[in-house]
Structures are given as C-alpha cells and as structure tokens.
Amino acid sequence: MRLLHAMLRVGDLEASIRFYCEVLGMKLLRREDFPEGRFTLAFVGYGAESEQTAIELTHNWDTSAYTIGDAYGHIAIGVDDIYATCEAISTKGGKVIRAPGAMKHGTTVIAFVEDPTGYKVELIQVGK
C-alpha cells in the first residue's frame, strides 16, 4: 500500500495552483474539469504520482470560499534549508505565519506558511 494523495477544497483554484507550484515549487501533474458535476480537480506534487504522494486541489465551481474546521491540522514538507526556503516563499508573495525556529518542547526546526485558502503548511528542516 502507498499513500496516493491528500485532498483540499479550494475557493480560488488558479491562486492555489500558483501557490503550490510557484511558491512551494511543486508541479501541476494533471488537471481535469467535470462540467456535469461542476468541479475541477488539479493534482500538484514534487514528482510523478506513480512514485510520490500528491495534493488534490478540488474546486467546486459554485463555492468561492470554505470555512476551515478545527479538525484540520496541516500538510508537512521537508526542506534542506528552512531559512532560505522561508525567505524565498516570502519573496514570491507567500505568507510565512511562523518564522523558522525550534518547535515547542523540542529541537526540530519548523516554520509554517499559509496557502491562499488558509490551509497551513508546515516546513520541517531535514537537511543540515
């Protein structure tokens, strides 16, 4: 078994694709419109879906915004240089909501950014 994807409902599909691709460096893997169901699916990720987990961005055409429930946590991405990554994200217009630093009650260096819908993305320092 393998984790295939995680799905997020987004109100502005184009802004979300720009964030995940231009700001976080993912690639648009595939996109398909479903006119009869009035929705579009866009899959983004760092590699082919046959080898890596993707994020499915679901845009329901008649919904422009969502309320993020308190059960949602975050998506986590490992990065080699968290400080440079956060600087690059800010330069590209991304919103860093927690600057890099040690996690509370631990030593792992983390940061948080927020996507256009308001979903949190945790960055975790995995390199030196």
Results as ranks from 00 to 15, higher is better:
115 D>Q: 06
12 D>A: 07
116 P>L: 04
107 T>Y: 11
63 T>R: 15
87 E>D: 09
52 Q>N: 15
109 V>Q: 05
71 A>M: 12
70 D>E: 14
69 G>P: 11
58 T>S: 13
1 M>C: 08
69 G>E: 06
94 G>Q: 00
103 M>D: 09
119 Y>G: 02
95 K>C: 09
88 A>M: 03
55 I>G: 03
95 K>E: 07
104 K>M: 12
92 K>W: 00
85 T>Y: 02
107 T>C: 10
27 K>I: 02
9 R>S: 14
89 I>C: 03
17 I>F: 05
14 E>Y: 07
87 E>M: 01
9 R>E: 12
73 G>W: 05
9 R>G: 07
38 R>D: 10
106 G>S: 11
33 D>S: 12
38 R>H: 15
11 G>N: 05
64 S>G: 08
127 G>W: 02
125 Q>T: 07
64 S>L: 09
7 M>R: 14
71 A>P: 10
19 F>A: 01
23 V>Q: 03
25 G>K: 01
30 R>P: 09
79 V>L: 00
23 V>M: 01
63 T>I: 15
6 A>I: 13
102 A>E: 14
103 M>T: 09
105 H>L: 13
103 M>F: 08
108 T>I: 10
83 Y>L: 01
37 G>K: 13
127 G>K: 02
94 G>P: 09
83 Y>A: 01
2 R>S: 10
68 I>W: 07
3 L>I: 12
49 E>G: 12
12 D>C: 05
22 E>D: 15
62 D>C: 09
14 E>A: 14
114 E>I: 00
14 E>C: 09
20 Y>I: 05
5 H>N: 12
76 A>H: 08
126 V>Q: 08
29 L>A: 11
95 K>F: 06
79 V>M: 00
20 Y>G: 07
36 E>P: 10
53 T>R: 07
69 G>K: 10
14 E>F: 08
107 T>P: 11
114 E>G: 01
113 V>K: 00
93 G>A: 09
45 G>E: 07
116 P>E: 01
17 I>C: 10
57 L>D: 10
83 Y>W: 09
120 K>Y: 05
37 G>C: 08
122 E>I: 02
82 I>D: 00
44 V>Y: 05
14 E>H: 13
95 K>W: 03
73 G>I: 04
99 A>Q: 04
91 T>M: 00
24 L>I: 01
10 V>A: 09
116 P>I: 03
71 A>C: 10
102 A>Y: 06
99 A>C: 03
18 R>M: 08
92 K>D: 00
32 E>T: 12
58 T>H: 06
122 E>S: 04
104 K>V: 11
37 G>M: 15
98 R>Y: 03
3 L>Q: 06
66 Y>F: 11
67 T>C: 11
67 T>D: 15
102 A>V: 06
85 T>A: 02
61 W>D: 12
24 L>V: 01
73 G>S: 12
23 V>Y: 00
8 L>G: 06
20 Y>Q: 04
15 A>M: 09
68 I>P: 14
116 P>Q: 03
3 L>E: 08
44 V>L: 06
41 L>F: 14
106 G>H: 05
79 V>S: 00
18 R>P: 11
81 D>M: 00
